Computed example of a mutant assay.
Amino acid sequence: MAGQDLLHTQPRPMHWLATATAISAVVAAASFVQPPDATATTSHNATTGGRHPSAAPDPGKVTFPVDCGPNRLDVVKKASGDLDGDGTAETVAVVRCHTGAGSPPSGVYVLAQPSERRAAPRIVATLLAPAQQRSVQTLSVKDGAISAAVLGYSTRDVPRCCPDVRKSLKWQWKGGKFVQSELPAAVSTRRA
Score class of each variant (00 low, 15 high):
Ser188Asp: 11
Gly85Arg: 04
Arg190Glu: 13
Ala145Cys: 05
Lys142Gln: 14
Leu128His: 10
Trp16Gly: 08
Ala129Thr: 07
Val158Lys: 13
Ala131Lys: 14
Arg160Tyr: 03
Thr47Leu: 12
Gln113Ile: 09
Gly60Asn: 13
Trp171Lys: 02
Ser147Ile: 00
Val141Gly: 00
Asp84Met: 07
Tyr109Cys: 01
Pro114Gln: 04
Leu7Arg: 10
Val110Asp: 03
Asp5Phe: 09
Phe32Gly: 15
Ala2Asp: 12
Trp16Gln: 07
Thr39Pro: 00
Lys78Glu: 15
Lys61Pro: 01
Arg160Gln: 13
Arg12Pro: 03
Ala46Val: 11
Arg72Trp: 08
Ala101Ile: 10
Thr99Asn: 08
Ser24Ala: 15
Met14Ser: 12
Ser168Val: 06
Ser24His: 15
Leu169Gln: 08
Val110Met: 03
Lys142Arg: 12
Ala40His: 04
Lys177Trp: 01
Lys77Asp: 08
Ser115Pro: 00
Gly102Ser: 08
Ser135Phe: 11
Val110Pro: 09
Phe64Tyr: 14
Arg51Trp: 00
Arg118Ala: 14
Lys177Cys: 09
Thr155Cys: 03
Ser154Val: 02
Arg191Phe: 01
Phe32Ser: 09
Gln4Cys: 14
Gln132Ala: 14
Val62Cys: 07
Tyr109Met: 11
Ala145Ser: 05
Thr48Phe: 03
Ala55Gln: 15
Val26Met: 14
Val110Gly: 13
Arg160Glu: 13
Thr189Gln: 06
Ala25Val: 15
Ala149Ser: 13
Lys177Ser: 15
Phe64Asn: 05
Ser147Glu: 13
Val92Gly: 05
Val108Trp: 11
Pro104Lys: 05
Thr63Arg: 07
Ala119Asp: 15
Pro163Leu: 08
Cys68Asn: 00
Pro159Cys: 05
Asn45Gly: 04
Pro36Trp: 12
Ala93Val: 03
Ala119Cys: 05
Ser181Phe: 02
Cys68Gly: 01
Leu73Glu: 10
Gly50His: 03
Ala185Lys: 04
Gly85Cys: 08
Val94Thr: 13
Asp164Ile: 01
Ala131Phe: 02
Ser24Met: 12
Arg117Thr: 12
Thr138Arg: 10
Thr189Gly: 03
Gly175Arg: 02
Tyr109Val: 15
Pro163Asn: 03
Pro70His: 12
Gly60Trp: 12
Leu139Arg: 10
Asp82Trp: 06
Ala79Lys: 09
Ser115Leu: 05
Ser31Cys: 07
Arg191Asp: 02
Lys174Met: 06
Thr91Cys: 03
Thr42Met: 04
Gly102Phe: 11
Val124Leu: 10
Val94His: 07
Val150Lys: 01
Lys61Thr: 04
Ala18Trp: 15
Arg117Trp: 02
Gly50Phe: 02
Asp67Trp: 11
Ala79Trp: 06
Asp37Glu: 15
Pro114Ala: 01
His44Gln: 06
Arg72Gly: 13
Arg122Gly: 01
Cys97Gln: 13
Gly144Asp: 14
Asp157Pro: 00
Ser188Gln: 09
Pro105Asp: 11
Met14Asn: 10
Leu83Val: 07
Val27Phe: 09
Trp16Arg: 15
Pro104Val: 06
Pro114Tyr: 06
Pro184Asn: 15
Pro163Gly: 05
His15Thr: 00
Ser43Asn: 06
Asn71Gly: 08
Ala56Glu: 07
Phe64Cys: 02
Arg96Ser: 06
Leu139Met: 09
Gly87Phe: 12
His52Lys: 05
Arg190Ser: 11
Thr39Val: 15
Ser80Val: 10
